[in-house]
Amino acid sequence: MTPVSTGRAPVAELTAVSVSLGDRPSALSPILVDIDLVIEAGERVALVGPSGAGKTTLLAVLSGMVQPVAGSVSVLGVDPSNLSGRTLRAHRSRLGIVNQHLDMALPLQVIHNVNAGRLGRWSTASSLWSLVRAAGRNEATEVLDRVGLADRAFSPTDTLSGGERQRVAVARVLRQQPDLVLADEPTSSVDPRLADDVMGLLCGTVEAPSGWTTVVSVHEPDLARHHADRMVGLRDGRIVFDRQPGEVSVADLTDLYRANPTDHPTGG
């Protein structure tokens, strides 16, 4: 299984990474098993596979939220588990996170949830003051404009529809300008047309190129095929294929999503 290489310095490199529920590698509760993955700068990687395949955990390893029980991790040139305090914050500010559940404070006005993307670079004091008088209005309005929500900057986020909230989450990442975007099923709760927009914004395939590297987990292989330039298939915590979208066959996908004969169907 040779990773695709474009010759540039890798943004993320996982070597023999395993994650399990306990502290030690365990045959009973493996979540990720022996993952080798190299992601180069500017790549748009889509993680595909059935629910429970380990997509979310793999993203969490990349974001540093989950530490592997074995193997080595390097993200943006460092192992996040070796960082703390200021250096950790600086590292994290280069990561853009979009989760399935959006994870934003709904009572806040939209502009604050967009500005939340800058918290890693703002001092605590200016972050708090911005809640009284919103900072970076121009920049925030500009990214909101790109997701089509310029007129809702001062609406409370919970007055927005589900799809609009999803776009706020994207705007937050646009505002953050991270080096690596880690998105976990960002399209799961929106209609197909909007899903296409969201993927386009996250992968920088619409408008100007974003300049960042994207790792995104998606449910629908077609979205991945359309927006990503690399597809990684995960099943039962292992990488089963890692190819350019054009090289992923229908048989590959059928195999990836087939019902597990020994277990309950896990989705797809």
Binding site: Q109, L128, V132, L160
Partner: peptide
């Protein structure tokens, strides 16, 4: 869509605390 009850009072609260 129901109007959010908390939009401006949040600001009021912080301003009050700072004051």
């Amino acid at each position: 869509m129901k109007k959010n009850p908390w939009s401006a009072s949040w600001r009021t609260l912080i301003t009050a605390l700072v004051a």
